[in-house]
C-alpha cells in the first residue's frame, strides 16, 4: 500500500472512531445542521413551486388582439400572416365572432341559457397569439405587444402582463428573502456547528497534541476532524430532507387552500433529486466549514 493509501486508511478509520467515540456530540452536530437545513429547504421548496408555476403559466401565455368590427375575413387572414412574422411570435390563430361566442358558452356552462336572450353576438373576432418560449417573460411579452400596438385592424390588446409582472416580482422577492434568510441561517449554522465541533476538538486536544508530537502536519491532524464534520453535515442534510418530506406530506392537506391562492391550481411539488442532493451537499459543506474553523483554531492553540 502506498503512503497516500496508508494515510487515507488512517483518516477513514480515525474519523469513524471519532464519531463512534462521541455519539452524543455527533448527534448534536447532525441535529443542528438538520434543523437549520429544514428552514433553508422549506424556502427552497416554496421557491421551486413558485418558479415552477411561473414556468407552467408561461406555457399558456397568450396575447389576444381584438379585431375591429366588420373586418373582412381576407384582411383578418392577411393580418394574422403579418403578425406571425413579428419576432417572438410562435403561432397565430384567428378566432371568429362565432367561435368566441361558442367558447364563452362553454366557459359559463349552465348559465349559457342567459345568452339565448342576446339579439346579436357582442363578442369581437380576435387573433390568439402564442409567444415563442424566449418571449414568455414580462419583458419579452412587452416587446411583442409593442409591435402589435397600432396595427391597422387591431382595436384592442389583452394580456395578463400585470399579473405576470406581479408574480415575477413576488418570486424575486421570495428568492431575495430566501437568499438572505438562507445566508443568515448558513452563518448561524456555521457558528453553531463550529462551536459544537470545537467542543469535540477540545475533548480530543490530547490527540492533536500527541499527533503534533510525533510529527503530524496540521492538515494530517485536522483531516479526520474535517471528514467527521463533512459526514455529520451530510447526514444532517439527509435528515433535513426526511423531515421536509414528512412535513410536506403531513402539512400539505392542512394548508392546501392557502397554497392554491399562492401557487394557483398547480400541484405542489417536492424538491427535485438535484435539489435533494444540493441540500445534502450544503449540509456536508456546512459541517466541513464548521469543523475547519474549529480544528484549525484548536491546532493553533
Amino acid at each position: 500500500m502506498s503512503r497516500a493509501g496508508a494515510h487515507l486508511r488512517y483518516f477513514a478509520r480515525t474519523s469513524l472512531r471519532g464519531l463512534r467515540a462521541s455519539p452524543v456530540t455527533a448527534a448534536v452536530g447532525i441535529s443542528t445542521i438538520g434543523i437549520a437545513l429544514v428552514l433553508v429547504g422549506a424556502f427552497s421548496l416554496l421557491l421551486t413551486n413558485m418558479e415552477g408555476l411561473l414556468d407552467r403559466f408561461g406555457d399558456d401565455l397568450r396575447v389576444t388582439a381584438y379585431l375591429e368590427s366588420g373586418l373582412p375575413v381576407a384582411e383578418r387572414a392577411a393580418l394574422a400572416r403579418r403578425v406571425a412574422t413579428i419576432e417572438g411570435v410562435l403561432e397565430v390563430d384567428v378566432v371568429s365572432e362565432d367561435e368566441a361566442l361558442a367558447r364563452f358558452r362553454e366557459g359559463v356552462g349552465r348559465a349559457s341559457g342567459l345568452l339565448a336572450e342576446l339579439e346579436e353576438n357582442p363578442l369581437p373576432a380576435s387573433l390568439e397569439i402564442t409567444l415563442a418560449e424566449r418571449r414568455r417573460t414580462p419583458e419579452g411579452m412587452r416587446v411583442v405587444v409593442e409591435s402589435l400596438d397600432g396595427l391597422p385592424g387591431v382595436s384592442d390588446l389583452a394580456y395578463g402582463q400585470e399579473w405576470v409582472e406581479g408574480y415575477a416580482r413576488a418570486v424575486a422577492l421570495v428568492r431575495g428573502i430566501g437568499a438572505g434568510v438562507g445566508l443568515v441561517l448558513a452563518l448561524a449554522t456555521l457558528a453553531i456547528v463550529a462551536n459544537t465541533i470545537r467542543l469535540a476538538v477540545y475533548a480530543r486536544r490530547d490527540e492533536l497534541e500527541i499527533l503534533s508530537l510525533v510529527g503530524a502536519s496540521r492538515p494530517f491532524a485536522a483531516t479526520p476532524f474535517l471528514v467527521e464534520g463533512a459526514l455529520q453535515g451530510a447526514v444532517g442534510g439527509a435528515l433535513a430532507v426526511v423531515i421536509l418530506y414528512g412535513l410536506f406530506r403531513l402539512i400539505l392537506p392542512e394548508i392546501e387552500a392557502g397554497l392554491s391562492m399562492l401557487l394557483g391550481f398547480a400541484e405542489p411539488r417536492f424538491l427535485t433529486p438535484g435539489g435533494v442532493l444540493r441540500l445534502i451537499g450544503a449540509g456536508a459543506g456546512l459541517g466541513l466549514a464548521g469543523s475547519a474553523a474549529a480544528v484549525f483554531q484548536g491546532l493553533r492553540a
Binding site: 496508508a6 490530547d206 490527540e207 508530537l213 510525533v214
Partner: peptide, 20 residues
Amino acid sequence: KLLANRTVEENVAVTLEVLG
C-alpha cells in the same frame, strides 16, 4: 501522554501511521 481511547498497539502505531 497516551490516548486513553486507543489500545496499546494503536498508541504505538500512531507514529508509524503519521509516517505513512
